[in-house]
Design a protein around this nucleic acid. Structure first.
Lengths: 206, 206
DNA sequence: TTGACAAGTGAACGTTCGTTTACTATAATG
DNA sequence: CATTATAGTAAACGAACGTTCACTTGTCAA
């Protein structure tokens, strides 16, 4: 089979995401694929090589997604009222897309869980974990809110605090989705949170 | 030494919290204490017994803390304005105490990290993790906010949404404290969040 | 047809795992 | 003083670990 290497990577990721890297044996990965562990070494030079390939893959996926979502936001030449609704709309859809990505996309969901399990052993994984789903998103929202405050679309509360208020419910709901798979309810809570946030901090008028 | 059993428990917890249960060997635990692994079996019948003792210990600690913090809140016989400030003050101090507990108390902090690492393997650990630091606190705040809304001290937004808005920043900051040990900043953010929350949702007048 | 190569088997490697056992030193108890 | 319990060591157990290797296929190009 031509995509055996891919199957190994995905199976290993699924197991790493449940049990942690150390707790998953090469035999188990091979067993899940109906082959012997010796065969794995035709595709990866060792167990760590599989792990590294997973991380490398995620870097690639993340780069592609960033490129896709980096609308330069230079389109605020229209009137203020239009800019306002466009800004909130794009925040809404971006946030929802991020939530769906981290909770429903098989690779991203497993990768996030794997990072969760590796964060305390490996400083590099800790850094990656936080830049992906803790500090990273908060910093990103802070920079957006900073611009919006400057444009007068937001009340002038400290953007860092606003970013925390905005993102942390999403962070909690992502974690909650790992156990209760009540997708509808979590998405609903996320949307209600965003509306609440906008009604609290979005400026009604100029 | 009379408290060897205690030292074993604390050392094992510290290692479990960093590497995960499976990745910690009995030899390593013994080695950290300067003894051979055979000696461990004079105190615990096997490795799992150490883990179970840790969980049992946390149950005990949690029960003691609940008993201590369960002020029956039956003291809202004073005038509304006084009740209001008393309610917010106790929420503030309770929240801060919880944050300090989960981020600075050695046992609680390690236990929380251990649960984080075990949550995907063991449904019982998943349940415990969420009841301790995800759904549990949210549900608790929801019931408090429900009462407060009924008393007219809070705007009548859905208490479940309010609980999410209130607790999730604390949840994120607890996680953030695991890497950046910027204790002052996290406590500061938590306090600013609470003031922001109160100014948003606390009724200024009756 | 032949030869090279890719992919998988199964056994073996040395190491480490959790656990048990025989034994020893120390300290408390009759 | 004799004895019994406690807390430790050191060695061994079988099983599982990651990894390697000789060997067998099947496929495809020369």
């Amino acid at each position: 089979m031509i995509d055996t290497k891919e199957k190994i990577l995905l199976t290993a990721l699924r197991l790493f995401a449940r049990d942690g890297y150390e707790a998953v044996s090469v035999s188990t990965i091979a067993g899940e694929l109906g082959m012997t562990k010796g065969a794995l070494y035709k595709h990866y030079k060792n167990k760590r090589d599989i792990f590294d390939s997973i991380v490398e893959r995620m870097y690639r996926i993340d780069a592609e997604r960033s490129a896709q979502y980096d609308v330069p936001a230079d389109t605020y030449d229209a009137d203020a009222e239009a800019y306002k609704s466009v800004a909130w709309d794009s925040i809404r859809s971006f946030t929802t897309a991020q939530f769906v990505f981290w909770t429903e996309d098989d690779f991203a969901r497993s990768f996030r869980r794997m990072l969760t399990l590796e964060q305390y052993r490996n400083p590099e994984m800790a850094e990656l974990y936080h830049s992906c789903i803790v500090d990273g998103p908060v910093d990103y929202m802070r920079s957006i809110f900073g611009e919006m405050t400057a444009s007068g679309v937001l009340t002038d509360v400290d953007p860092e605090l606003l970013a925390l208020e905005f993102y942390s419910p999403m962070f909690l709901l992502i974690g909650a989705s790992d156990i209760k798979q009540d997708r509808k309810k979590h998405l609903d809570m996320l949307n209600r949170h965003m509306e609440q946030f906008i009604s609290c901090y979005g400026r009604k008028e100029n």
